[in-house]
Design a protein around this nucleic acid. Structure first.
Lengths: 222, 222
DNA sequence: TAGGATCCAGCTTTGGATCCTT
DNA sequence: AAGGATCCAAAGCTGGATCCTA
């Protein structure tokens, strides 16, 4: 809908311009279809609406939402106290390449290196856009994320994909990511080097991490 | 049943002697009545059994279990991983004296100053005695306990007993302690200085504290 | 009433399952 | 298959209620 923002300031200005607006009002203003069923924010629709309003590229390629700025857009549903209700999807885990992957060159790291967090405030009234904030991980934050990432891949390398559960990882963890649990992709299994069909997985940020992050960002001047 | 132990070494030796023994076997050996209903460890019975086996004074007076040693006995039910299932009772909160109480002279502090923790391991088989360990709070631990204690009494002093909930306190917190919620004792209420009838309360150590504590003790040589 | 504690309904968190679009 | 995520049953935790004995 919108053209890509030329720079960070333009992106920030666009985000500021929609802070406080209700989602259904925005979809009408920008003439973008947006129907939640029964008033619930529906799966993925909000993210796509904000992408189009802010001028993100969209599409399924493995590039940033704002390629020229290297910035990723994340809409995050929060309650009135700015606390997220859910974990946040980061990207797919390439199980077939788990033995070769490294944090430093990973798509997860690239995505998380610069994020524009756009809270979607779900309170008593209609869902509204909150105050957006840019974030880059501090060295301390990144070292935890890196260690979580490597723990996950290490688990697959050592014990096969069955050894990797959603319990692994302090802030970044791995969960199924598929339309159905019958979906399958290929991974290394437990029995030495055999390949097995297994459900696809994705990386997610735990709620306790994004909750602390949003809290910190709200307490910090821009 | 047993005479009081003469010193800490004798107490330790008695505790070591029963480590690994099943509770019903011990009750038979020592000829002390002990019936759980349906195999569950029943309220208070286990503590009383261990008191008698180890030679604690028993009774309801506000003195240590081993008065000459200044040691308190705490039986604590744990799972196979030495994780407690429940919070641990410390002592009654004297609501009527809440405005004058201080940690340094409190019965809570005296009780917690030297504890013999006796795990009761509840796993697949019958309930068994685990490896007992002595504990004295480190200065860091005690400062948290002191601050929890003072937060609790401060809440009563400022806002009345209604302001004090089980949410107050990081490690040490306050909960009802009565045979029934109709039981009553006297406390300061919210409406300035009025005394109101309210349910009696006790201090408890939260499970997350005793879990960390047992974990640390198990990892530490004697 | 104090001491020995556990019980258990309800709320919260966890983590596997699922939905839609390109 | 990748990207945008939320759904929701079951496990875990919290904290008020309760049981027994002296």
């Amino acid at each position: 809908m919108s053209t890509p923002p030329r720079d960070l300031e333009e992106l920030r200005a666009r985000a500021d311009a929609i802070a406080g607006r209700a989602l259904d009002e925005l979809s009408a203003t920008y003439a973008i279809a947006f129907e939640g069923r029964e008033g619930a924010t529906t799966k993925g629709k909000t993210g796509e609406l904000l992408e189009r309003i802010l001028g993100a590229s969209g599409g399924s390629q493995a590039v940033h939402d704002f390629p020229t700025l290297g910035v990723e857009l994340k809409t995050i549903p929060v309650d009135a106290a700015m606390r997220p209700r859910e974990s946040t999807y980061v990207c797919t885990l390439q199980l077939a390449e788990a033995d070769r992957a490294e944090w430093s060159s990973s798509w997860a790291r690239a995505k998380l290196s610069h994020v524009l967090w756009v809270p979607i405030v779900l309170g008593d009234g209609p869902a509204r856009v909150g105050v957006a904030r840019f974030w880059k991980p501090t060295p301390e934050q990144e070292s935890v994320l890196a260690s979580d990432f490597e723990d996950a891949l290490g688990a697959v390398a050592l014990g096969g994909v069955e050894a990797l559960t959603a319990r692994t990882g302090r802030w970044l963890h791995v969960r199924p990511k598929a339309a159905s649990s019958r979906d399958r992709t290929w991974s290394i299994g437990r029995d030495d080097g055999d390949w097995i069909a297994t459900v696809p997985r994705g990386f997610y940020l735990r709620t306790r991490f994004t909750a602390a992050l949003l809290h910190d960002l709200a307490a910090t001047p821009e």
